[in-house]
Nucleic acid binder design. Sequence first.
DNA 1: AAAACCAGTTGCGATTAGCAAGCAGTTGAA
DNA 2: TTCAACTGCTTGCTAATCGCAACTGGTTTT
Lengths: 171, 171
Amino acid sequence: MEETHRSGCPINLTLEVLGDRWSLIVIRDIMFGNRRHFRELLQNSEEGIASNILADRLKRLVERGLLTREDDPSHKQKAIYSLTEMSISLIPIFAEMGAWGNRFLPVSEELSIRARLLKEGGRPLWEDFMQELRVLHLHAPRDLDKPSVFDRLRAAYLDVVARKAAASAAE
Amino acid sequence: MEETHRSGCPINLTLEVLGDRWSLIVIRDIMFGNRRHFRELLQNSEEGIASNILADRLKRLVERGLLTREDDPSHKQKAIYSLTEMSISLIPIFAEMGAWGNRFLPVSEELSIRARLLKEGGRPLWEDFMQELRVLHLHAPRDLDKPSVFDRLRAAYLDVVARKAAASAAE
DNA sequence: AAAACCAGTTGCGATTAGCAAGCAGTTGAA
DNA sequence: TTCAACTGCTTGCTAATCGCAACTGGTTTT
């Protein structure tokens, strides 16, 4: 368990935790897709993660404090993975990465809508979303007056999917 | 040169370009350290990058549009690497990653000062810095009235280093 | 003429990625 | 009660990548 760092630079240290092709994908699916079980993460994976890689990343992310793992009381074999304050705080990074990808890379419309909303909403929206994630994952008290950012992102996504389906059916 | 993508998600596409342990380190050194030659990047590397990895990353980043490579007119063997609009636009991601690393990871003081300034300066400072990088790397016209963010970040870093040296000499 | 400098390349062992199949225990429906 | 489906992984295997060290052919400086 000896951890040695290449340097004390914050960028480098962040890369040592998140600098691979899968860690942020796993966190993204938990965060935006609300997938909390191993099988959900495995089978609904847009990118097709392999089970051994998923297992390894979940273990590493738990070790490093970005996720927690609990037993599901409703099923003896189920494990529930939850975000921590550390991973919830990645929202600004996700937002900026999404905005950058949207601008420079060949994104698909239905998968980029969330990134666009997050960018347009700016830091106030991020804060709302982070507070919702605290409610969902850290059992924080919920503010019942606020409309859910999570639902808004999800609705926007489903809207694009439905519109595209209608458009292709009309051809 | 067949590029196939795992998905059209902006986060995923960004990870396909930047999701490894070295790409952002190379860009960081060009961007914040103004290292423009192979040897500068190799020998001043805080993290100790190997020459074959550096060569591979430079090649990939040029292929993917994040860097350009030109011959140095003053030396037949020298190559000059420059940022592009695509990599200059990574500034918000660097700023957020730096802020996150500063908050959650064991950063060293002298290497975290730039991240702190970038965070405190916020988006207006980022824009100033991006404009300076355009001057340095894209030959954009320079606004002579503005004080250089680049110099400010550098001065803050040297200040911490000098202060720590004085403090340890006084012991 | 010699030494230092230039951008890489090459060889090699160790690590990691990624695919496919399998596992023991648990649950829900027939 | 039986059985299929589901649970979170693990194992075996091959291919790709990482990372160290030594080296290359050419250029510039001294």
